[in-house]
Write a protein that binds this DNA or RNA. Structure first.
Lengths: 334, 334
DNA sequence: TGGGGTTTCGCAAACGAATGCGTTTCACGT
DNA sequence: ACGTGAAACGCATTCGTTTGCGAAACCCCA
């Protein structure tokens, strides 16, 4: 059924080692014989068994990718960037979704180790508890690059965006336009990114004297539904901030939905800004002012860093991407 | 560095075969010894080498997934559905993007064969030329399931949505609301889905007596930019249809962008309906009437079909998913 | 024609885990 | 004390491929 190197050897009448050398372009086999072998090989439909090759060479040509959720366009675009780097060099991506569940994360890391991936690209689960397993990855000598988030105390390459700076731009922009009160729809509170963005928000608001009343910080749970609920709650208060900061792309959808349901208009009833710029931000009515991360770029950089580690044993390198401020029409001048 | 079954054997003082049996829960090992072995094994940080196991058993626990573009939310959600099926049974997904390029497709299929994946889930490239390689996949005894699209003449399981029925619902709805002229932003003309949806559109229009003038069928090239250009071209004509049918989700973005730039209002200036329902359709102003596919469901079904083939040697099975009509507010009554 | 050097190729040993089969151990029944 | 059967374990082989080493064949030039 499956044609192996041995079958070819038999067919051509040479030894398997010769076939191997011929097919791998190694010296020590005459051009004539090499031609004959390659010809017969693909005539027989031979395709090398990577499980055998991997066993022998210790190279599987597989990269493990750990992400929270592939259905989130942000991460999907990151993965796309990674593919652009790895496909040309013959590597492929083994995809693992964690769903922000540390158990899934642990389980996935284990299988990645088992599969003998040549490297791991990971956006660690936000609670950040799996330090043990990431160190085990490094102990096993498997190159590791974090993206979007990091695990404190794990010494390896990473690429993240400058969340504080992004937040700062948003808040300062609001302040410049006369806003002195702010509501926030936050990510899940335990999350790394969530903490960073929230702390950044609070810090800048304090600096600028922007007031955030109790109850104006609402847990959007990182997703569309959570943000919808949070936004409805916020809009039910009698006293509202003049501006709203939504901390990621998916939650922006929930907020818009809530406003639509409540027939609230941006920016007349409230101004809105948002972290991330997914497909929809520029199409909304009005288009949403935001800071844009560059997910594809992030994937590209992370992949390049990892590839460098794999091929040239590259040193650790920490990249911090800038978030680009995009002014649109969702903020009122006061 | 890497601890193997042999190291454990040495450490415990038994034979490798005993370790193997103990770790795999096979009979022939005393409970006492088994306990000792497992304990020492994970104390030494042992993790089985799947390249070796795979070679021996011919099972890699890897599924190959072939998709056009992971950054398209439609496909990302499909993949998510697949994961839900495969993760619980210990399989993982090897992701390959084709970018609708037959060469990439061919290349990817080859690597999937090399990697000895246990099954392949594929949304074939639309031009549909790679019949040869898919038959080779089947010849090698690798279970194959198509989703979203099929390759004619390849006899295997698939799951697609009923494009004709979906199109029919959209067009009939327009007709019911008094529309008698229609513009179409089409997918790339060579694509399977593109042909099916366009032919369906033409057929139903003919039935209902809806006129589509020359030039009202515009190639949106399946993507946002292409649709933007196409829409602008359409709106530059002096004579316009009263309604516009956009043939997929991404193109809807381009169309909306074009309308925003031209300050055209839906549905006052033109009515719009669309195939697919991504995140944004319900948030637009006005929300877009459409037929929704269920990508996650599609992934789920495809994965289940494949798993059945892998585990129980299941027979071929063809599933056709219904597209659900969702009435919103983007169509004017005339 | 012969010696030295270079190709060209075959042989066999790995790689890590799984397993059929053969061997040992041990407990129990007589 | 001996025999019996089952349970526990070891040995050696297997998977498909790569690779170091050695043997043979070839070439060039004296």
């Amino acid at each position: 059924m499956k044609v192996t190197i041995k079958d070819i050897a038999k067919a051509v009448g040479v030894n398997v080692s010769t076939v191997s050398r011929a097919l791998n372009g190694k010296p020590g086999v005459s051009d004539e014989l090499r031609g004959k072998i390659t010809q017969i090989a693909d005539q027989m439909g031979y395709s090398p068994d990577m499980t055998a090759t991997g066993l022998k060479k210790g190279k599987t040509k597989i990269i493990g990718v750990l992400i929270p959720d592939i259905a989130n366009p942000f991460f999907a675009q990151i993965v796309r960037g990674m593919e652009k780097v790895f496909r040309p060099v013959g590597y492929h991506l083994l995809l693992c979704s964690t769903d922000e569940d540390p158990e899934h994360e642990e389980e996935n890391l284990k299988t990645l180790l088992r599969q003998r991936v040549e490297g791991i690209l990971a956006a660690p689960v936000d609670s950040g508890g799996n330090k043990v397993f990431y160190t085990r990855v490094l102990e096993n000598g498997i190159p590791l690059v974090f993206f979007d988030r990091i695990v404190p105390d794990i010494e390896t390459s990473y690429v993240i965006t400058d969340n504080e700076a992004g937040i700062r731009e948003l808040v300062e922009y609001l302040h410049k336009n006369g806003h002195e009160s702010l509501g926030v729809i936050t990510l899940r509170s335990r999350s790394f990114t969530g903490r960073v963005r929230l702390n950044g928000t609070l810090k800048v608001c304090k600096e600028l004297g922007i007031t955030i009343k109790d109850g104006w910080i609402l847990d959007g749970k990182s997703g569309q539904e959570g943000a919808y609920e949070a936004a409805r709650r916020l809009f039910s208060f009698e006293e509202r901030p003049t501006a709203l900061l939504v901390q990621n792309n998916l939650m922006m959808l929930g907020v818009m939905k809530a406003m639509k349901d409540l027939r609230l208009k941006v920016p007349d009833d409230i101004s809105v800004v948002c972290f991330d710029d997914s497909y929809w931000n520029q199409i909304f009515d009005p288009p949403i002012t935001c800071v844009a991360q560059e997910p594809e770029q992030m994937g590209l950089v992370a992949a390049t860093l990892l590839l460098d580690k794999i091929m040239h044993n590259g040193k650790n390198s920490k990249t911090i991407l800038k978030a680009h401020f995009i002014e649109r029409e969702s903020v009122a001048k006061i």
